[in-house]
Amino acid sequence: MISLLLATLTQSLTLIPLALGINLSYTLLRATDMTIDGSFVLGAGVFAQLVTMGISPIIAFLVALSCGAVAGAFTAFLQNGGKVDPLLAGILTSFILYSVNMAIMGRPNINLLSTPTLFSGAFAHSTTLGWFSVALVVGLLVVAFYTLLQSRLGLCLRAFGDNPALLSRQGYNVTYLRVTGFSLNNLLAAASGAITAQIIGYADIGMGVGMTLIGIGAIVLGQHIILPFIKKHYLRAGSELLAGFIGIALYFFILNGLLRFNINPIYLKLLLGILLALFLRTATRKASFS
């Protein structure tokens, strides 16, 4: 059981920034941003390519984050100009990102096993220290993100998701807010991608497939477990954050748990899907009463 929890914890840790990003797009901005599938790979790919070229991992990490932000800005830009639906804009961007990622990486798979990364030093010392350093980087991102959510910008982003037309009539620059929101969200996805690449030892062109879905599933799951307990609305940002953590952890708990049943893996995704559907169903039933 302890090994199961440990496996859950380490796996969730790398995807926490992604969960934050999806929390931002799905809960605050109220948009299903499929760009994440692409920007996750973009973050991993840019980071892998840069460190392979011998650039310092810290700089590579920061550049990877910025690239994610640019991808998000592009999705926002698509929505601004042609009034493309956010879902469609995201799919379009991640479609384009496929080629961009290939161009940046130059090959479909970049190996990081013998390349110094942000965490390689710590992992060489001991696994515990390694995971501690990962937790540190993720923690920094979480704190930065939480501070942002609590600021006026966070309020504006939430208002944008609630009612962009009213926000615009109140004199706010909606375009700016949309770009900021989508950039941040994809920056976090790219961060998750870059961290994941360092943990699993490579960046791969196909590693982002389904990430948005896992993220949204986890967020919704987490929220419906935790939000009923939160009565005070000023605790909202914090509880949403917590919901993201819990959701992601639960997803991996279930995944790792199912593996332990020695279930034929052909049915694993079916079971995982049914479990998620069960949770989501209870979630929607709750929502229809409130």
Partner: peptide, 9 residues
């Protein structure tokens, strides 16, 4: 089954 997360688990 082609799933990176599953493979890691």
């Amino acid at each position: 089954q082609g799933d990176v997360n599953l493979q890691r688990s």
